[in-house]
Design a protein around this nucleic acid. Structure first.
Lengths: 148, 148
DNA sequence: TTATCTGCAAATACTTTGCAGGGAA
DNA sequence: TTCCCTGCAAAGTATTTGCAGATAA
């Protein structure tokens, strides 16, 4: 599944509504950040988002704060691609965003891997170890065609 | 610094040999760190290793440098459990250390998961996307029996 | 002796936070 | 007006690095 590319402004009403529900405000930076994420289909770091914003539009600290907020509202999903910084992707309505990535160790290109092969194994592992509420993080790394 | 209380262990010959091969030295901190890892079966962070060393035994920076060295010699393996710091486990001779973890989101307890379910899928994903040298990182998260 | 190591402190990189002024509702 | 939000700067955490003295071989 794609992430919001079919409905360019679909996120705004949802954003406004969810913000209202938490007595939070619909501000310029928050709209601008969602707009940036909508235009990029790959996971973006705070710094990348900041760089993509019209310059002077908002502070880096505000990007960090906004990403926490949007994450708590389940409008974005945080990914850890193992390079020491958080990355975020826009979530489609009703999508839990669970998927994986194939990351090039040469140029950092990212391919989205939509299938999840682990869900059945989770239950097995949970039962065997007495754990509840099991989730997992799975990322693939390799060398992309261009970098070979 | 001195390490009069540091006794030779099973890894020492291997360590000494590999160090010699790279014209590196067999020093107190390096022996002490391997000894710490040998006594702990769970992945340890630099800070944990540092804290477990006899106090004043070596500097935190030296722990970081030693872990890089030991990793490059394939005597330890680095894991990223998603909490913003690297963790390390001792590797057995000839072991590539590939396995996964089940981490409690409550108390950070770690269960080792020895099987790997992904190896066949890797090839599939590699071919489909034209990638080479594919690897993966997979970690499970949940709530352990004690924390439920 | 000599090249590698180490402690120390300073520097980096990513992220969070305190505070006072600015802004949405 | 009332809170919430923002910029700015400072602080926090994990990690790396420059340097001069210490040490293994």
């Amino acid at each position: 599944m794609k992430h919001g590319h079919c409905h360019p402004r679909a996120e705004l009403p949802k954003l406004a509504e969810q913000l209202r529900r938490k007595s939070r405000k619909l501000t310029g930076p928050r709209q601008a950040i969602l707009e940036i994420l909508r235009r990029h289909s790959h996971p973006m770091s705070n710094k990348e988002i900041f760089a993509a914003l019209p310059k002077g539009d908002c502070d880096l600290a505000t990007v960090y704060r906004s990403m926490h907020l949007l994450e708590s509202m389940k409008m974005v999903k945080r990914f850890d691609l193992g390079d020491g910084m958080a990355r975020f992707e826009l979530l489609a309505e009703g999508d839990d965003g669970h998927h994986h990535h194939l990351v090039c160790t040469g140029c950092s290109a990212v391919v989205e891997i939509e299938e999840c092969f682990i869900r059945e194994l989770e239950e097995n592992i949970a039962v065997r170890n007495g754990f509840k509420a099991i989730t997992h993080k799975l990322e693939f790394f390799g060398i992309c065609p261009k970098c070979q």
